[in-house]
Write a protein that binds this DNA or RNA. Structure first.
Lengths: 117, 117
DNA sequence: TCCACTCTTCGAGGAATATCGTATTATCAG
DNA sequence: CTGATAATACGATATTCCTCGAAGAGTGGA
């Protein structure tokens, strides 16, 4: 992953609404969610939400597909994968303790909120 | 880590200059680098660089300390740790293949970009 | 065909970011 | 104290981003 691409992905996530939207899509899994459902849950006008979803899509973090009248958005695991890998490889010092973040993947699986950390 | 905080950290890194600066600090390790050295390597005017370093500092990603006339910036591993953990726990689907990013930590260690010594 | 529904595109405003020259503060050497 | 060095603070400007209402495009049912 190129730094430019990484910066774009980081920028796409660097907004509360977009981060929240992305998290909803993570929860939803591969099935994704229609744009309307996301807008409703976030409480934003649909045109505003579209703007944010496009940002995410442009960064390759989500995919979209049409299902009848709805447009379903879903996370693109590969992109997040690449981003986390980039941060782990390039932004964590060699001697820095950045690996522990990978262990609690199991606990993370159960609670979406994980206040444990 | 709160979503708000995560968004702030992501935003701080979501800029080519800042990402580059941060990577220099990662390379530099705990010793850090004086602001001037970073500015020179990035080719940005010092006032511009100060602006970016403040963004990083405000997000808690770097620390600063004075050494005689220079001000030394250094990465704050804990913050990056928390960010990667947040992404791993909240932004990687349960069934999504996000763990692989953690496994090849070994390969990452010897990748082209780590002048570990 | 006509209408209801879902979402995107467009356009405009206001807010926030980024850049950089200049001025100022802090430190050290002589 | 004075001058030189290193960095930050300030101010102005340009650019980009965010928001949202209104209008448009695609889909399916009657």
């Amino acid at each position: 992953m190129e730094p430019k691409q990484a910066a774009a992905a980081l920028g796409a996530l660097a907004h509360e609404h977009r981060l929240a939207a992305y998290r909803l899509l993570v929860e939803a899994g591969p099935e994704g969610l229609p744009a309307g459902a996301i807008a409703e849950r976030l409480g934003t006008p649909s045109s505003t939400l579209t703007f944010h979803l496009q940002q995410l899509r442009h960064a390759g973090l989500v995919t979209q597909r049409r299902l009848s009248r709805q447009i379903i958005y879903a996370m693109a695991p590969a992109a997040m994968n690449a981003l986390v890998a980039y941060l782990t490889e390039n932004c964590c010092g060699v001697q820095a303790s950045c690996t522990p973040a990978c262990e609690p993947a199991a606990s993370a699986a159960r609670s979406r909120k994980t206040p444990a950390a």
